[in-house]
Amino acid sequence: MPLLSPTTVVSALRAAGCVFAEDEAELILATARTPDEATTMVERRVVGLPLEHVLGWAEFHGLRVLVEPGVFVPRRRTEFLVDQALAQAPDASVVVDLCCGSGAVGAALATVLGPVELHAADVDPVAVRCARRNLDTHGGHVHTGDLYDALPGDLRGRVGILAANVPYVPTGEVALLPTEAREHEPLVALDGGTDGLDILRRVTAGAPHWLAPGGCLLSETSERQAPAAAAAFTAAGLATRLAVSEELGTTVVIGVRG
């Protein structure tokens, strides 16, 4: 039994400002393997580390995804992007998770689709290392590099699902993000440029060269940015539509190659 009681942990977390202190205490105590580890985990959470970095994992689309320190934490709202991809291309056999972070999106897609040719890429070597741990069981190939430059050339024209959960926070608004994100997640995974759409435009412009006929590109964006994001998809020659989840507060732009 851990030396820390649930009541003690809840009190410490609540004093640190954790809104869901009871739930977090339960997760920490269930994850810790020793009393000392439980104490260390509580201490790390109290000083502001994201819960997922403390636990070493995040729940995403029914999976327990490994999340290392310094890696972008997959958001539950991004499960909506996964569901839209599966609805759009339920028989996809080649999947690419671009700007993959932990590889959560790729892992979720591969889990549902079954055996697929799975590739993921990120510019951050720390994220690549983490994604390899998550995608190894799916036979995934994880590459380091800037967007399409990281991918093998023989993927051109063959991709059924191109999921690109790109950074889309405008540079001037990064300072407004929660402290956990600003201080413990890589800036490259958050900052999307002046209007937040710099990376999205680059991904969209190149997508037709990589998608198979009927293949789809999906990117998450904000409600405010959605019209401009959709216009970029259309300008690239993709048949474009928006999918909105009011429950999760997210918008996904979907583009299909004709």
Rank of each mutant, 00 (worst) to 15 (best):
V166M: 04
G160P: 00
G192R: 12
N165F: 01
L176N: 13
L147F: 10
A131E: 12
L176R: 15
L190Y: 08
A131I: 13
P167I: 13
D191A: 13
P186H: 11
P152A: 10
R182Y: 03
A163K: 05
R158T: 15
H141T: 15
L187T: 12
L190D: 02
C130K: 03
V166N: 07
G160V: 07
G196P: 07
G193K: 07
L155E: 09
G139D: 08
R132T: 02
V174N: 09
D191W: 05
L155N: 07
V128F: 01
Y148G: 10
L135V: 09
E173F: 04
I161S: 02
T144K: 06
A163Y: 01
G160K: 09
A131L: 12
V174G: 11
D154W: 13
N165E: 13
V126M: 00
V174F: 04
Y148S: 08
L187Y: 11
P178A: 05
T137K: 14
E183D: 14
R133W: 02
R132V: 01
A127E: 01
P167E: 08
T179M: 04
L147D: 04
D198S: 15
G153S: 12
G145R: 01
H184Y: 15
A189R: 13
H143R: 13
R129G: 14
G153L: 13
D136G: 00
A164Q: 03
G153Q: 14
G193Y: 07
D136Y: 04
E173R: 15
H141E: 13
T144P: 00
A175M: 05
A181L: 12
V123Q: 09
D149A: 15
G192I: 10
D146K: 05
H143L: 05
E185R: 10
D195S: 06
T144E: 15
A189S: 14
A150G: 07
A181Q: 11
H141K: 12
G157W: 10
T137G: 08
L135M: 11
V142M: 09
P167R: 10
P125A: 02
L190K: 08
H143P: 02
V169F: 05
P170N: 11
V142I: 12
P125Q: 04
A163G: 06
A127W: 03
V159Q: 06
V188Q: 13
L197I: 10
L151S: 11
V123G: 00
V169R: 03
H138Y: 15
Y168P: 03
P178H: 03
T171L: 05
Y148D: 07
A164I: 02
L176A: 15
G139S: 11
A150D: 10
E185P: 08
H141I: 14
A127P: 03
H143N: 02
L190N: 01
L197R: 10
P186R: 06
P170K: 12
D149Q: 15
Y168F: 14
V166Y: 04
G160M: 06
E180W: 01
D124V: 09
L197N: 04
E183K: 09
E185T: 10
V128I: 07
T179N: 00
H138S: 00
D136P: 00
G196N: 06
P152K: 10
V188F: 00
V174T: 10
T137Q: 14
V188N: 00
R182G: 09
L197K: 08
E173C: 06
